[in-house]
Design a protein around this nucleic acid. Structure first.
Lengths: 344, 344
DNA sequence: CTGAAAGCGCTTACAG
DNA sequence: CTGAAAGCGCTTACAG
C-alpha cells in the first residue's frame, strides 16, 4: 500500500522546501534548472499528482459541474448527460450527477448539497413537482451566490439564467402541420397534464396548427395523461369513441402505447391510423412499426449547455461579474419519418 | 449577490474566534449556552453551510463515489447508476460519473483524474477495450493507494476487489434449457466476440445447456458479432441458411434485430421462430412482439455495489486496513416470459 | 469558557 | 535561487 505522495513528503525527501518543490513542478523560472530537474525526476518516480481537493480549496473552483435531472433511466436525459460529459471532459471538467426523481424536495436537497462548494455551477432540468409548485427559490439562491446555472428542456421563465431548449411549440406545430398536409382530418393529441412545461408547449403547438388550418379543436380528441402507469384506458377510450385517423403524442411512451393499444383493437398502424411521437429514442427506433417522431438531439443539447456553463465560468474570472446577458439557445429539431405514418 | 458566508466572517461579525464559532455550530459542550445560541442564530440568519471542499481536505474523505462505465445511453448502465445513486444518497454520498466510451485510454485517464483526491472509491464496469487488452494496472494502482474499488457486470479475475455480478453462465444455461424443454431442437446463438466477458460466459452457458441435453453444438448456429452496426448480414445468413427454430441472443439489441430481420424475411415470431434475449430493458418491453428475456436487475446491482463500497469505506476507518476479505455478490436473475417465445 | 496554533495539500507574493 | 509566511475553509488538541 503506497499512499499517494504529497509535496511535503517530496520536500522532506529531497531536503528542500515545499515551495521549491511546488515551483519546480510548475516549471517556475525562479527555480534553477538543477533542482527543477531533480524534483521533477523524483516526482515522476513517485508518480506525484497534485491533490484535486487542495487545488479546489486554494483556487476556489472545483472544475466540476453539477447536473440535476429528474431521472436517468430515460433515454433523452441519458443522452443529455452524455453530451455534457463529453464537452466537460474536453475542458477539464468533471460531472457530478444527482437525481431529483421528479421530487421537489430531492431537487432542493441535492442542489443545496452541491452548492456548498462541490461544484462551480449547475446544469439542470426541472422536476415535475417543481414545475407544479412553481417554487424556484433554491435555484435563485444558488444564482445569487454567484454560481451560474444553465437550464435545459424543462425550464422556467421565472428564473433568469442561460437556457438550452428546443422550440417545443414549433416542433409540435410542424408535426401536426405535416399530418394535415397528408390529408388527415381527425388528429388526436396524447399529451401530459399542463404543468409539465414542455407538454403544455407541445399542446399549444398542436392547437395552433389546427387553428391555422381551420380544423376544429375538439376537447374529446385531446387526452391529458397524468400518470403514465395507467394511461391505457384513456387512450383506448379515445380510439374507440373518437376514431382519430392520426395521433400526435408528446413523447415516445405515449406513442408506442397508442400503437400497441390500436393494434390490439384491430386498428392498423399506419394503414388506419398514423402516429407521430416526440423524442427520437430507442423505443421509436425499435418499435414495430417504427415511429415517426420529432427528433430532439440530446447530445447536442447537453453539449451546448456545458459550453454555455463553462464559458460563463471562465468569463467570470476576467470581467466583473454582473454580465447579465443571459442567452437562450434553441436546438433545431426535425421530423424523422418512419413507418408509423402512412405516406398517402 | 451575497456570497456564501464563512466561519471567519461570522467570527469577525460576532467578535469571537473562529474556533468558538466552529465549536458552537457543532454543539460542542465546551461552549457556553449563551454564545452557542448567539452563534447559531447568526449562522442560521446568514444561512451558513460548511464548505464541502474544506471538510474533504480536513477529513481526508470526500463522501463521493466515482463511477466509471462504458456508456450511459444504455438502459442497463443507466439503471445501475440509478441504483448506486439511491444508496449513495441515503448514506450521504454523492456520485461523480465518468464515461469510458468503451475506450481503454479514457478509462485510465478518468480513473487517474478522480483518484487524485476527488473520490473515496470507485464503482466500475470495464470498457470493451480494457477487457480485450487485459491491462488493469490503473485499477490495481488505485487499489494499492488504498482506495476501494467495486466492479460490476464486466469484471475480471485479474483484480482482487469486491464484485457484483449475475451468474451469466447459469442464466444463459437456464434460458437455453427452457427452450429445449419446450421442444426446440435447432437453437441458435447470437452473441458477442469472446473478449467481452459477459458475452463469453453466456456463450458458455449456451454450449453447456446443449451438451447436457445431448444436442449438437454447431458452429454454424453460433453468430459472434463484433460491431453492432452491421450485424444484420450475419443474422440474415443464419436465418436463411440454418433455419433455427429458436434463437438465444445475449442482449436486447441482438434480440430485437433478429426479430425485425426474421419478420422482414417472412419468418413469424414466435410461430416459426422463438427468441429469448438478455436484459429486461425498454426494448424488450416495447418491441412487437415483446421479448422473453433474462432479467438483470440493474437497480439492485447498483444498490449492492454502492453498499459494498460504502461498507468498506466506513470499515476502513476503524479496523486496520488489510481486511482483504473481498466479496463477490451474485444478483439473481430470472426469465421474463413474453410474446417472443411460443408456448407449445 | 475562549482562543491561538497546527494541520489537511496546495500556491504565490514577498524576503533574503 | 530558495524558503518562510499567509491563505483557501475548516476542525480539534491544547493553553490559558
Amino acid at each position: 500500500m503506497k499512499r499517494k505522495v504529497t509535496l511535503k513528503q517530496i520536500a522532506k525527501e529531497l531536503d528542500v522546501s515545499i515551495s521549491t518543490v511546488s515551483k519546480s513542478l510548475r516549471n517556475s523560472p525562479e527555480i534553477s534548472e538543477d533542482t527543477r530537474q531533480k524534483v521533477q525526476a523524483f516526482a515522476k518516480l513517485y508518480n506525484y499528482k497534485p491533490n484535486n481537493i487542495a487545488l479546489s480549496l486554494k483556487n476556489k473552483k472545483t472544475k466540476t459541474i453539477g447536473i440535476i435531472i429528474p431521472e436517468i433511466v430515460h433515454h433523452f436525459f441519458a443522452t443529455v448527460i452524455s453530451g455534457i460529459e463529453q464537452v466537460a471532459n474536453e475542458n477539464g471538467y468533471n460531472v457530478i450527477v444527482c437525481l431529483s426523481d421528479e421530487s421537489f424536495d430531492k431537487e432542493v436537497i441535492n442542489m443545496e448539497m452541491l452548492a456548498n462548494g462541490s461544484t462551480d455551477g449547475f446544469i439542470m432540468s426541472l422536476s415535475k413537482e417543481t414545475e407544479q409548485k412553481k417554487d424556484f427559490h433554491h435555484i435563485q439562491e444558488v444564482i445569487n451566490q454567484g454560481m451560474p446555472v444553465v437550464m435545459f428542456d424543462r425550464v422556467t421563465n421565472d428564473v433568469l439564467c442561460d437556457k438550452v431548449i428546443i422550440d417545443d411549440q414549433m416542433a409540435a406545430y410542424e408535426a401536426v402541420d405535416f399530418l394535415v398536409s397528408k390529408g388527415f382530418k381527425k388528429i388526436a393529441l396524447v399529451t401530459t397534464v399542463d404543468y409539465v412545461s414542455v407538454g403544455k408547449l407541445r399542446t399549444d403547438g398542436y392547437i395552433n396548427a389546427l387553428n391555422d388550418h381551420d380544423l376544429p379543436v375538439d376537447d374529446e380528441m385531446i387526452v391529458k395523461i397524468e400518470d403514465i402507469a395507467n394511461c391505457a384506458s384513456k387512450i383506448e377510450k379515445l380510439l374507440k369513441e373518437n376514431k382519430p385517423d392520426a395521433i400526435f403524442a408528446v413523447n415516445e411512451l405515449f406513442a408506442v402505447t397508442s400503437i400497441k393499444l390500436a393494434t390490439k383493437m384491430g386498428i392498423k398502424v399506419p394503414e388506419d391510423l398514423s402516429i407521430i411521437g416526440f423524442t427520437d429514442g430507442i423505443i421509436s427506433q425499435f418499435s414495430t412499426p417504427s415511429i415517426t417522431t420529432v427528433s430532439q438531439n440530446g447530445i447536442k443539447m447537453g453539449g451546448r449547455a456545458a459550453k454555455l456553463l463553462i464559458e460563463r465560468l471562465e468569463m467570470e474570472e476576467v470581467e466583473e461579474e454582473e454580465n447579465e446577458q443571459y442567452r437562450t439557445e434553441l436546438i433545431e429539431t426535425h421530423l424523422v419519418l418512419r413507418e408509423s405514418t402512412s405516406t398517402l
